[in-house]
Design a protein around this nucleic acid. Structure first.
Length: 478
RNA sequence: GCUCCCAUCGUCUAGCCCGGUCUAGGACAUCGCCUUUUCACGGCGGUAACAGGGGUUCAAAUCCCCUUGGGAGUACCA
């Protein structure tokens, strides 16, 4: 049987980081098994679903490099791929179930339903449907109401038996009898409910494996019931552990950035995000930590999912991002970095070789593309200098005063835009021998005199990249 | 409440299925040292975990049970 998997987001918000991970696992699983990855939009909740969210989610998926074979914008043979466009299909199946006596029309009002639940809770019973409409003797009355144009919901008659789910991740899960009561298939407004359309679609779209969040585990019993009623073979299921926040609660807005979009805006590399997400609940057989997802697709194995929920914590993601930045080819790195530098920045007025040197100088020190401009401004162009205690200390040394005087004399008489590497080396050598300094006083004194900072890249690499007039200006402060 | 799921360093995890090779391995973070000063990179090293209790066994992180803790579901949301 050919492998077909799907990701089925609801367009009720931006793409959630947890959703992105689920999509990723499906994508990887399809790739590993030479299967197809289908994207289906679950927009049956009319009030919350918005087309703009759908568009943004597809866009973000694309940004992450998670591409699908079939979807609303890539029609295949089993469309349409938006549930809102499939309501007739669901109704048809629901009616068939009613005809077979496996479901029934229910005309209870919200108030009646509410009362039923309260009563059950009070008596310590599970809050299941106990309305009269499930009884055959009222079928005729229901038919009359229907004929008279009254709106009723279609409710599924939950069989009184236990169900067993052989889950790829959880193993054998037994759902005892009486776990759920009769549930709604089609709402009185004619729209289907998740558990129903999910099954119909997975069946019609020939989905072979369902990989989804553990929050759906309990839904499975309802879905299994429907497959049974439809006489259809259920797909195999893999319920992946959930992503949670530091407080071990379900990931939500208050845990900070939970939408994929924000990572895009903060200049994270999609390859890094996806690399990190992949490792949150799945492990590489060789414990490799840094990889491109397409490189591991062929070894992706659903047996390596972990069962426990993972805390979503940004620290490691930052590191992964830095690693991905460093592995970028030179020209792409340059291109990406430049996207995050202001158009009128000093950087763009410099020569290509200068740009290259500067990128080489900083690329190992940044975790984000947006860090580059910061480094440039602080380490090279000396804006935003913070007077630290350490800096004050170095400034107070007599040797520092000697160094700055010496440098001022040497550098003031040099013309040009930059100091060459050789020029700097010579000056530095002279400084060393003339003043007889070494170690910390020498290096720190020179650094502070020339950059105004107590830290930064290797002096020999850094100084020749600082415009000469900046150096002169700096020295004139002493 | 009821049902289901989960439980290894602060965090992500390997190991668990097929008990001994585990005085529990890796990574992030953290700390220390080295890399002629700093930051970073790199290298080396340190701190740090099998939730608790019972079994089974010559032997348990690994198998079984209980407790505790956490999570999910219990909708005419998805």
């Amino acid at each position: 049987m050919s492998v077909r998997v799907r990701f089925a987001p609801s367009p009720t918000g931006y793409l959630h980081i947890g959703g992105a991970r689920t999509a990723l696992y499906n994508y990887l699983f399809a790739k590993a098994n030479n299967g197809k990855f289908i994207l289906r939009v679950e927009d049956t909740d009319l009030e919350r679903s918005k087309r703009e969210y759908e568009e943004s989610q597809l866009e973000d998926l694309n940004w992450l490099g998670i591409t699908y074979d079939e979807g609303p914008d890539k029609p295949g043979d089993v469309g349409p791929y938006r549930q809102s466009e499939r309501t007739e299909i669901y109704k048809e199946y629901a009616k068939k179930l009613v005809d077979q006596g496996l479901a029934y029309y229910d005309f209870c009002s919200d108030e009646e339903l509410e009362k039923m639940k309260e009563q059950a809770m009070k008596e310590g019973r599970p809050p299941h449907y106990t309305g009269k409409w499930r009884n055959e003797e009222f079928f005729e009355e229901a038919a009359n109401k229907l004929a008279a144009g009254e709106k009723g919901a279609i409710r599924f008659k939950a069989p009184k038996k236990s169900y067993i789910l052989q889950d790829e991740v959880r193993g054998r899960v037994v759902f005892p009898e009486n776990m759920v009561g009769d549930f709604v298939l089609i709402r009185s407004n004619g729209l289907p409910v998740y558990n129903f359309c999910c099954v119909i679609d997975d069946m019609l779209m020939k989905i072979s494996h369902v990989i989804r969040g553990e929050d759906h585990l309990n839904n499975s019993v309802r879905q299994l019931m429907i497959y049974d009623a439809l006489n259809a073979e259920p797909p195999s299921f893999a319920h992946v552990s959930l992503l949670i926040g530091k407080d071990r609660q379900k990931l939500s807005k208050r845990h900070g950035a939970t939408s994929t979009r924000l990572y895009k805006e903060e200049s994270y590399l999609p390859s890094a995000l996806v690399n990190y997400l992949c490792l949150l609940g799945w492990s590489h057989p060789d414990e490799k930590e840094i990889f491109r997802i397409d490189d591991i697709a062929h070894i992706f194995d659903s047996k390596r999912f972990s069962k426990a929920a993972a805390i979503y914590d940004l620290e490691k993601l930052k590191w992964v991002n830095g690693m991905h930045i460093r592995s970028l080819p030179e020209d792409i790195l340059k291109e990406e970095i430049e996207k995050f530098i202001k158009e009128d920045h000093f950087y763009f007025k410099q020569s290509d070789s200068w740009k290259k040197s500067v990128i080489d100088l900083f690329k190992n020190q940044i975790e984000f593309f947006s860090d580059f401009e910061k480094r440039l401004n602080e380490d090279l162009l000396h804006s935003n200098i913070v007077k630290t205690e350490k800096l004050e200390e170095v400034l107070s040394w007599d040797t520092t005063k000697q160094i700055s005087d010496f440098l001022k004399n040497k550098i003031d008489i040099i013309d040009g835009e930059y100091l060459s590497k050789n020029q700097f080396q010579e000056i530095f050598k002279a400084l060393k021998s003339d003043l007889g300094l070494k170690g910390k006083p020498l290096f720190m004194g020179t650094r502070v005199s020339l950059t105004g900072q107590d830290h930064g890249p290797e002096l020999g690499d850094l100084i020749p990249l600082i415009p000469l007039n900046f150096l002169k200006k700096r020295l004139s402060n002493f």
